[in-house]
C-alpha cells in the first residue's frame, strides 16, 4: 500500500504574452509510488522539474494533468484541501532566510501554524512543545532563540527551526526541497541529521529533492532521476549509487566532484548554441551512447530488473 501515488503527472508553464506561444514542460509524464515511512529522493540538475514536483505534490501549485492519490484519496484537480489533509503535507525550502516572515519573532513563526492546526490546547502547552523540539535540535538554551528575529540567526539555525516548524504539525508527508544546498558543508550535517531523527521518530514520509547524488545516496531509500521533466531512472538508492543504468545517471555520477574515489569521466556530447529537442529521447543531444532509435522516439520507463526502472533504448533493444 503506497502513501502517495503519482500517475502521469504533467506540469507545463506557458510563456508568451498574448498568445500562449510556447510552453515549458517542467514535468512531462511522471509516475511513481512512495511507500509510507520511506525517504524518496528526487535527483536532477536545475531545470529538471524537481522543484516543480515538490510544489505540485505539496499542493502549492496545480498540475496541468495527471493524478495524485494520497492515502487512497484523490489530491489532484484542486488546490483546496480539507484542513486535516493540509496539515499532513508540509514543505521545507532551500533558502532558510526566506523561509521566515522577517517581521515575526521565531516564537510567533512557530506558534501561528500550531494554533491554526489546533496542535495542543493553549499557548503554554505549545511553547512547552516547541522548547522540547528546540532542545532536541541542540538549541541551548532554547528559549533564548524564541525571542529572536530571523535575521539574528545563522542559515543553519534557521533551517533547523524550519524543519521543527514543519514537524510540529505532525505531517505524514514532508517535501524537503534542496534543504541544505545553501548551507556551509560543516553545518549541513546538523540539519540533515535533525531531519532524519525527526522523520524517523514521527514515521514521516519524505520527498527529498536534491541535486547532490552523494547526499541522496546517503539519505534516501529510493531515488528517482529526472532529466528535463522526464523520469529517466528509478530504483533503490543502493542500486542507483552502485550500479546506475541510465547514461545520464552514470554521467552524473562520474562528474560529481568527490574527494574519494576518482571516477572515470564519461565524455558527453557538447550542447550547441541552439540544441532543439525533438521527439526523441530528452538526453539524446548529450548522450554518448545514442543511436538512431534515440533520435526518433523517447523511450518508455520500463522495469528491467526488479525494483529498477530505466527509460533508455540501450536496455530495450531486444
Amino acid at each position: 500500500m503506497s502513501l502517495l501515488n503519482v500517475k502521469n503527472l504533467k506540469k507545463y508553464y506557458s510563456a508568451g504574452l498574448i498568445k500562449k506561444r510556447y510552453s515549458v514542460k517542467a514535468l512531462d509524464g511522471v509516475s511513481f509510488d512512495v511507500v509510507p515511512g520511506e525517504i524518496f529522493g528526487v535527483i536532477g540538475e536545475s531545470g529538471c522539474g524537481k522543484t516543480t514536483l515538490g510544489l505540485v505534490l505539496s499542493r502549492l501549485e496545480r498540475e496541468t494533468s495527471g493524478e495524485i492519490t494520497f492515502k487512497g484519496s484523490k489530491l489532484s484537480g484542486t488546490l483546496k484541501l480539507d484542513p486535516e489533509t493540509r496539515r499532513q503535507i508540509q514543505i521545507i525550502f532551500q533558502n532558510p532566510y526566506e523561509s521566515f516572515d522577517p517581521r515575526l519573532r521565531i516564537e510567533q513563526s512557530l506558534l501561528l501554524p500550531m494554533r491554526i492546526n489546533h496542535i495542543c490546547d493553549n499557548d503554554a502547552e505549545r511553547r512547552e512543545k516547541i522548547l522540547g523540539y528546540m532542545k532536541d535540535a541542540g538549541f541551548e538554551p532554547p528559549d533564548a532563540f524564541l525571542n529572536r528575529y530571523p535575521h539574528e540567526l545563522s542559515g543553519g539555525q534557521l533551517q533547523r527551526i524550519s524543519i521543527i516548524r514543519a514537524m510540529l504539525l505532525k505531517p505524514t508527508f514532508l517535501v524537503a526541497d534542496e534543504c541544505v544546498s545553501m548551507l556551509d558543508l560543516s553545518v549541513r550535517a546538523s540539519v540533515v541529521n535533525l531531519l532524519l531523527d525527526l522523520v524517523e521518530r514521527e514515521r514521516t514520509t519524505v520527498l527529498f529533492i536534491t541535486h547532490d547524488l552523494s547526499l541522496a545516496g546517503h539519505v534516501c531509500d529510493h531515488i528517482m532521476v529526472l532529466y528535463l521533466g522526464k523520469m529517466v531512472e528509478l530504483s533503490t538508492a543502493k542500486r542507483i549509487v552502485e550500479s546506475p543504468l541510465h547514461p545520464y545517471t552514470r554521467v552524473l555520477m562520474s562528474y560529481s566532484p568527490s574527494i574519494f574515489k576518482k571516477r572515470e569521466k564519461i565524455n558527453v556530447k557538447k550542447l550547441g548554441v541552439e540544441t532543439a529537442i525533438g521527439s526523441g529521447c530528452v538526453f539524446e543531444p548529450r548522450c554518448p551512447y545514442s543511436f538512431e532509435k534515440c533520435v526518433e522516439q523517447m523511450p518508455p520507463l520500463i522495469e528491467i530488473e526488479p525494483n529498477h526502472s530505466v527509460a533508455c533504448w540501450l536496455y530495450l533493444k531486444t
Binding site: G138, S186, D212, G217, S258
Partner: peptide, 24 residues
C-alpha cells in the same frame, strides 16, 4: 578533519552525516 568528514560519500546505507557543531 571535520570538513573532510562532513562530505557524504556514495555510502550504501543510511547513516548519520558528521559535521562540525557550532557557528562561525
Amino acid at each position: 578533519q571535520g570538513l573532510v568528514r562532513s562530505l557524504p560519500d556514495f555510502a550504501q546505507e543510511k547513516k548519520k552525516l558528521s559535521g562540525i557543531p557550532g557557528n562561525l
